[in-house]
Structure formats: C-alpha cells, structure tokens
C-alpha cells in the first residue's frame, strides 16, 4: 500500500512553527507520513532530505520573506532532477503577487492563510498521485 510522504520544512532563520506544526499534524491525521524538517533549512538541505526520504511533495511554511529568495534556488535544484518533486508553499505573509511569482517559477500550489484543510489535503493528494 502506498502511503503519501510529505516533507515539511521552514527556510532560513524563520522560526514561526505554529502553522508548520499544525499542518504536519493535520496531514498525519489524514493518514500521511510527514517528515518534519523543522527550522533552519536551506534549499540544499531540503533538496537533499527530499531525495533521501523519497517524498511525494515538499511543503514550505513561511512567515518571513526569506522564502522569496530561497525558493528560486530550491526550484532550480529540483529542476535538474529527472522527476522533480512538487513544491507547495503556505503562509500568511504570502501575498497574491508573491503567489503569482511562485507559480511562475514552478511552485505547484500556494496556500494563503485562509486555505482550508480540505483544500490542502486534496491538492497534496493530487500532486502525490502524479
């Protein structure tokens, strides 16, 4: 039986974990295996973890703007892979304009602060299915 595996992490010095922990537990409660990478990640460490863990989706939680600089770096690392792992981003600081830019560099989904659990689960399931 295939279980969905998701890597959840926060980039740089951002240390706001409320959303990341909340989402991780929510995904766990919906039967997913969450590899929780916590804070202080860089694109390189997340990329490496994603490969070692063979995850279906990488989820980035962001409550500072560092992600805007780090995500292009992460997407570039992933793009060089045969089967790039899809990346999703969530966080209250993500504005509509940021979301557009993220989508433009290949981020698969962006969840604002109003996103419901159902939306997040469905979108991760769909991405994992590909």
């Amino acid at each position: 039986m295939k279980n969905i595996r998701v890597l959840i992490g926060i980039l740089g010095m951002d240390q706001h974990e409320v959303a990341a922990v909340g989402i991780a537990k929510m995904l766990r409660d919906h039967g997913m295996e969450v590899i929780y990478a916590g804070c202080f990640n860089t694109p390189e460490t997340l990329f490496q973890s994603a490969i070692e863990e063979d995850v279906d989706v990488i989820g980035i939680s962001s409550h500072s703007w560092e992600y805007l600089y780090y995500l292009p770096e992460l997407m570039e690392l992933l793009a060089a892979e045969e089967e790039p792992v899809p990346v999703v981003v969530g966080g209250s600081v993500v504005t509509a304009k940021d979301a557009q830019e993220l989508t433009a560099i290949g981020v698969a989904a962006v969840y604002g602060s109003g996103a419901s659990d159902g939306e997040i689960i469905d979108s991760i399931k769909e991405l994992a299915d590909r």
Binding site: N3, A24, K25, L27, R28, D29, H30, G31, M32, E33, V34, I35, Y36, A37, G38, F40, E44, T45, Q48, S49, E53
Partner: peptide, 18 residues
Amino acid sequence: ITGGAILGDRIRMSRHAL
C-alpha cells in the same frame, strides 16, 4: 488510527544533512 506519522528524527541529525 489514521496510519499517518510525523517523523522528526532528521532534525537531530541536521548537521549531517549535506
């Protein structure tokens, strides 16, 4: 109950990440 899990051991080994 749900079959899900939170796996957080990597964090403790993060200095070997790269």
